[in-house]
């Protein structure tokens, strides 16, 4: 097998991956969300079903990570509730998501801030990122 063969294989791979991406984005209708990333404090408003009834609940916490891309992207947010850490994972394409509010922009150096899980009190704080208008 010479190099030309692998060129074709690579080309085929690209074609199927592009197709998969297009189809995934068609299967899920992604809404427009505000920009947020790891370290930001956000409030997520989502619908929960209790038997027949539907109501909106919110979850406020720090974004630990954004994972995946396109239609299958998810994000993890964490809050400390009554001394116990609570984490929730939401798919960005979920039909239950109503609204995302960005409360605070955090200044962090990495895309996944799992180190926050081991920290409590003062060391668990995240500095706020200041943006200035030009």
């Amino acid at each position: 097998m010479h190099s030309h063969f692998w060129g074709i294989v690579y080309h085929q791979e690209r074609l199927t991956m592009d197709l998969l991406k297009t189809i995934s984005n068609e299967l899920v209708d992604l809404k427009e969300w505000p920009e947020f990333g790891a370290g930001d404090t956000i409030t997520v408003y989502y619908t929960i079903k209790e038997g027949e009834k539907e109501r909106t609940q919110f979850f406020q916490g720090t974004v630990l990570q954004r994972r995946g891309s396109g239609a299958t992207e998810t994000f993890t947010i964490r809050k400390v509730s009554g001394g116990v850490g609570v984490e929730r994972i939401f798919p960005l394409g979920s039909p239950f998501l109503n609204k995302i509010e960005v409360n605070k922009k955090g200044k962090v150096r990495r895309a996944r801030i799992f180190y926050l899980r081991d920290r409590t009190g003062k060391s668990a704080r995240i500095k706020e990122k200041m943006t200035f208008k030009k």
Binding site: T16, S24, V28, F96
Partner: peptide, 16 residues
């Protein structure tokens, strides 16, 4: 056919 790959979608009940 040919396998293209895996993804996920939400059904009428909102299940992934």
């Amino acid at each position: 056919g040919k396998k293209v790959g895996m993804t996920s979608l939400f059904d009428a009940n909102g299940k992934n």
